[in-house]
Design a protein around this nucleic acid. Sequence first.
DNA 1: TGTGAAACTTGCCAGTGACAAGATTGCGCG
DNA 2: CGCGCAATCTTGTCACTGGCAAGTTTCACA
Lengths: 186, 186
Amino acid sequence: MTGTRAYHHGDLRRALLAAALEAVGEVGPAALSLRDLARRAGVSHAAPAHHFGDKAGLLTAIAAQGFDLLAQTLTEADDDLLEAGVAYVDFAVTHRAYFEVMFRPELYRADDAELNAARGRAGAALRSGVAALSSGGAPADTDRDSLAAWSIAHGFATLWLAGALPDRVGDDPREAARAVLRRLST
Amino acid sequence: MTGTRAYHHGDLRRALLAAALEAVGEVGPAALSLRDLARRAGVSHAAPAHHFGDKAGLLTAIAAQGFDLLAQTLTEADDDLLEAGVAYVDFAVTHRAYFEVMFRPELYRADDAELNAARGRAGAALRSGVAALSSGGAPADTDRDSLAAWSIAHGFATLWLAGALPDRVGDDPREAARAVLRRLST
DNA sequence: TGTGAAACTTGCCAGTGACAAGATTGCGCG
DNA sequence: CGCGCAATCTTGTCACTGGCAAGTTTCACA
């Protein structure tokens, strides 16, 4: 939508986003340095400001992209709640940089329109997965169930990323998540 | 244990910790400024370094204190898993500054001894609550159950703090958490 | 071709964390 | 009683950061 064309650099906006994801993976979203990104992309220290305004603008773009990617991921696993939960955790681990930015709204513009659209899509995918599951059995409270499913998947993912989980859970996040998430289905 | 006595300032170490908690509540743990803390305490900009070494040292002290407080909280609600979960969420909301630091290990020294002792106490309290619950019924997998309970409580708390939850959950975290956590007991 | 706008640069300022070196204060020990 | 000494705190500095302003280069389009 903000179709930035290739000018002097080629595609600086995209290059900066890529560099940002790399940097976030290395030092976390808070320690991100715009000047470092500029160096990585081979441009002057003020170039990023032209494309994103400021640091919050850059992180807003990343968060929006992240919610978009998450919505896609959840939609693909739509008919199986357990696998959707596993996919959620897998997303967090695989796209750690996105995930860490997405749930740190104090770092970006939470009122951004494009971002909220993507966030809405992700939320809808989550709820539709829960609704599909409960449609066969007893009448369920979809609101509460989707909140519970989201909480347990999000909690496990967060704890995994924080390195807070004990060693005994192993090193395969998908497998470990599946075991924990199954606790909801029983 | 590092029994710092009152010298010139009176009790600068304690004053800095208090100021830090206040500041974390205002701007988040990453945007914390040591110089700002110094100003709040009325000392020179280099005074904090003497007590905490650097920023990571200060946040390590906060995280350790936080895990200690959490362990106490969980121990008090030990015999009721649901209420322990509610207490966990309540801790996160009430002591937001502590909670936000505790689960951001990239900001502090995760290998600190005192911190890990406190963290261990909190983990033990959590597991003992789960074990107590399952002792009466069918033989359960305490490892998995405690991981699930921790995940759902932690996830709900994190999403609540991030402002990611939809408006319909209301504004009472304890009540909302109880509804979601009950989903595990059924 | 040339004009206007977009993309980028250079230069600057205030603020920050960390370090080094010095000043001050109060405790312990003779 | 007083003196040394270590803990506490200050002053000064450096490299770095984000953000702003003003200038320069490059491209699109008439």
